[in-house]
Design a protein around this nucleic acid. Structure first.
Length: 780
DNA sequence: CAGTGAGCGAGCTTCCGCTTGACTT
């Protein structure tokens, strides 16, 4: 038996380290935190200095007992969790749970998994730093207090099962604030003027030069006037300026930048990126994927230098050390990079390969030379006008890192690639081939994508690499935001074209404002944000996390006690919760908004978020005749819905016609649009619209459902009078008996299934009573 | 399960941050 037990956080890491350390060391992992506040209840004693009660997490019992027995056998236990606040707390919880003496147990840290780093760490152990642990406790307890006092307030005031927290509530607020900016954005158009000139040089060669007017016009009139001037104008080069330029590569990936680039370049969702990266990590192909560090190990720097020098030459290599810019970074790991730089390609799925390639290129390019260019700007004067055109040219003198990799940006609207300009000099005259004034819409603020939200959260220091993806899932699951595609609208626009001295006015049509996988707030998200912002402005403040982080730092430095910090936070906070809870007037609801008059009844039409969500109402609340109500669709907002859209909601449910002597009715229910026929429901397909669906299509859906029902039963077993059945379900064939379903093991053909085989399957799946079988909870 | 637009019945929901499996009805 080995004398030494080393405990790290991740099993994959344990495997690697064990190889470095040799026979005397057993390396194992805690798999993250092992103890925490209880899942239910506050778990913090408010009356007694906020004393927390920790319990072994339910899914960690087996790991903890295994660690206990290993620890007992070892002479020395080395706590090697990550070098940050959370890692320090894990080390402390481990020593508590394993019955080790915190004051003497060896604590080691390293922020790269290389042999040198590990051996050095073993030579220089310390003990658990309780100041750092206390900073973590303060973080944990503050989050618990905020989350578990605000959430119940929302259950009472808005809706059950909602949640609020230091991170998620601010994330929602970002999206709500952005949507309001978009709603309040003043639409408008401008005219952008572009030109193609032709120029004949000394040697008689003709060149085409693209240029854009330095000013934009607000109205068609102004644009037209300018083109009129152009039709008679002379064009001459006013000035030519050539400047050298440089571009440097981006730092190697952190979690956040990986998520952004994988989203922009590969179209992956944040969740998808993390799942793929996890697989690459577990396969030993990349370093740890949840990191905020841009640092590369000395060994990696050397390996990259070798690759760059061999493949591109010495002049393409430049060693760089990057510094993190993000607030609150804790840098317990390296940047995300390939484990072996010389491994160009990997085996795996297409997606894994693409993500690996991205990581490889980014890491290698980060150690390459700047790209050097020459930028030329020529001003082209227009006689009879004080405005001028600008032509830009750029020549890459040395491509440097661009040979391998170029970072993309969120707003890739820059359009044309600039290229070389012909040799112009001051006073040269040009003739215009064509000049166009194109009507463009003014650009509104962009909606967030998952990745750009992560970027913004990181800039504000809110959330950590391990929580970006789960935070997005949470606010979607709570119904605060939606991730959606929106089709956009048809827009007609003008183009004034001047060819020679002949002017034309043309109309074009384009699809405008379509969105792909963007984040939209729901009415509930907006309501909850407004409610929390008005009652708890400090917590919804974008800088709240940054402020408390400062105090956590003081605790970590031993300058402030965690109880002191929590006490001064909690007193005013809790008072706010109490006073909000005792406020008169039941539920928080949004203001009623009058959107118009119903032409049929002459009554007012209002929108509002009510007890059951966003709705439209025709008629007054205190009318003798009860108002009519309809719920909004999930992609509509009470603040932006138009009268026409609102009235349309009252058209459902509607009867399409008759089939087999019975009514065919279409409506929208809890599970989306449906057709009701003979008291049975059939969901509409994705391509069907309940407002325009024909009776023929509805019948088609009904018949399709009937066919499925007919084919549902594969076999009923006579052995127990048909109680046990083989059925065709949504996920393929399965066995059912007494309302409990059993899956069929892979490689078993359901058609030839025997009674014995069925018994065997049921027996094998019944004794593993790890999780309760599906419960049927019906609300009435 | 397939709208509702209260007023007596239960008990639950929830935070953030560390980490991986178990397991899809």
């Amino acid at each position: 038996m080995a004398d030494n037990l080393v405990i790290v956080e991740s099993p994959a890491k344990a495997k690697t380290i064990e190889k470095f350390l040799g026979k005397d060391y057993v390396v194992t992992s805690s798999r993250g935190h092992i103890r925490d506040l209880p899942k239910k209840g506050l778990g913090v004693d408010i009356e007694h200095d906020f004393m927390p009660s920790y319990v072994i997490s339910s899914d960690k019992n087996a790991i903890v007992s295994e660690l206990r027995s290993l620890a007992k056998k070892a002479k020395t236990v080395w706590l090697a969790s990550d070098e940050d606040r959370e890692g320090e707390a894990i080390a402390w919880h481990l020593s508590e749970a394993l019955g080790l003496d915190t004051a003497t147990t060896k604590r080691i840290v390293f922020h790269e998994i290389t042999k040198n780093a590990i051996l050095k760490a073993i030579e220089t152990p310390r003990t658990v730093n309780m100041n750092l642990v206390n900073a973590q406790q303060a973080r944990r307890i503050l989050d618990r207090l905020v989350g578990f006092e605000l959430s119940p307030l929302l259950w009472r005031k808005v809706k059950p099962s909602l949640s609020a927290g230091r991170v998620q509530s601010v994330a929602v607020r970002l999206i709500v604030d952005r949507e309001r900016e978009i709603i309040n954005f003043k639409r408008g158009d401008y005219f952008r003027v572009t030109a193609v000139f032709s120029f004949t040089d000394d040697k008689g060669r003709t060149h085409k030069i693209k240029a854009e007017l330095s000013d934009r016009f607000d109205t068609e009139e102004e644009a037209k006037n300018f083109l009129n001037i152009c039709s008679k104008a002379r064009f001459s080069v006013g000035s030519v300026e050539t400047k050298p330029g440089r571009r440097s590569p981006a730092a190697p990936f952190t979690t956040s930048t990986l998520q952004q680039e994988a989203s922009r370049k590969l179209g992956f969702s944040v969740l998808q990126t993390m799942a793929l990266a996890q697989r690459l990590y577990e396969a030993g192909l990349i370093t740890y994927m949840r990191t905020d560090s841009v640092n590369l190990s000395v060994e990696a720097l050397g390996a990259i230098k070798d690759v760059v020098t061999a493949d591109y030459g010495k002049e393409y290599h430049k060693q760089r050390n990057y510094k993190t810019k993000s607030k609150g970074a804790q840098e317990a790991h390296e940047a995300i990079r390939p484990s072996y730089i010389d491994k160009r390609e990997i085996n795996g799925t297409q997606q894994e390969k693409r993500l690996y390639e991205l990581i490889w290129k980014r890491a290698v390019a980060s150690q390459m030379a700047d790209a050097v260019m020459e930028r030329t700007v020529a001003d082209i004067d227009v006689s009879g006008s004080d405005k001028h055109f600008v032509a830009k040219g750029e020549v890459v003198k040395f491509d440097g890192y661009l040979k391998l990799y170029q970072e993309s940006s969120d707003d890739d609207e820059s359009g044309e690639q600039s290229s070389l300009l012909p040799p112009l000099k001051q006073g040269d005259t040009l003739t215009h081939t064509v000049i166009e004034a194109t009507q463009r819409p003014r650009q509104r603020p962009p909606r967030y994508s998952e990745a750009s939200l992560v970027k913004h959260l990181e800039e504000l220091g809110i959330g950590r690499p391990s929580t970006y993806a789960p935070t997005i899932s949470t606010i979607i699951n709570r119904g605060y935001i939606l991730k959606e595609d929106r089709p956009g609208v048809k827009r007609t626009y003008l183009k004034l074209v001047l060819t020679g001295n002949k002017g034309e006015r043309k109309t074009f049509e384009e699809n405008f404002g379509s969105e792909k996988a963007k984040l939209f707030p729901t009415d509930i998200g907006m309501l909850v944000t407004d409610y929390l912002s008005s009652h708890f402005p400090a917590i919804l403040d974008y800088s709240f996390t940054a402020k408390v982080e400062e105090e956590f730092d003081h605790i970590a430095e031993g300058k402030l006690s965690w109880q002191q910090m929590i006490t001064s936070f909690y007193a005013p906070f809790h008072k706010g919760v109490e006073s909000a809870g005792s406020e008169e007037g039941g539920y928080a609801s949004s203001q009623q908004r009058l959107i118009g008059v119903d032409p049929k009844s002459g009554k007012n039409v209002y929108t509002r978020v009510g007890r059951f969500g966003p709705m439209v109402q025709i008629g007054e609340n205190d009318d003798k005749e009860k108002p009519r109500y309809a719920s909004l669709r999930s992609d509509q907002l009470t603040s932006t819905i138009t009268l026409d859209e609102a009235l349309k909601l009252f058209e459902l449910p509607r009867t399409l016609g008759q089939y087999e002597g019975k009514d065919v009715v279409v409506g929208v229910g809890r599970f989306g649009p449906y057709v009701r026929f003979d008291s049975k429901f059939v969901s509409l397909g994705k391509e069907d619209n309940p407002y325009s669906i024909t009776v023929e299509r509805a019948i088609e859906l009904i018949e399709e459902k009937r066919r499925q029902e007919r084919e549902k039963l594969i076999k009923a077993f006579d052995e127990d009078g048909g109680k046990t059945q083989l059925l065709n379900g949504r996920y393929g064939p399965y066995i059912t008996r007494d309302k409990v379903n059993y899956k069929i093991p892979k490689g078993t053909d359901p058609a030839t299934m025997t009674w014995e085989k069925v018994e065997e399957i049921i027996a094998s799946q019944s004794d593993t009573e790890t999780k309760p079988k599906r419960k049927y909870t019906r609300k009435k």
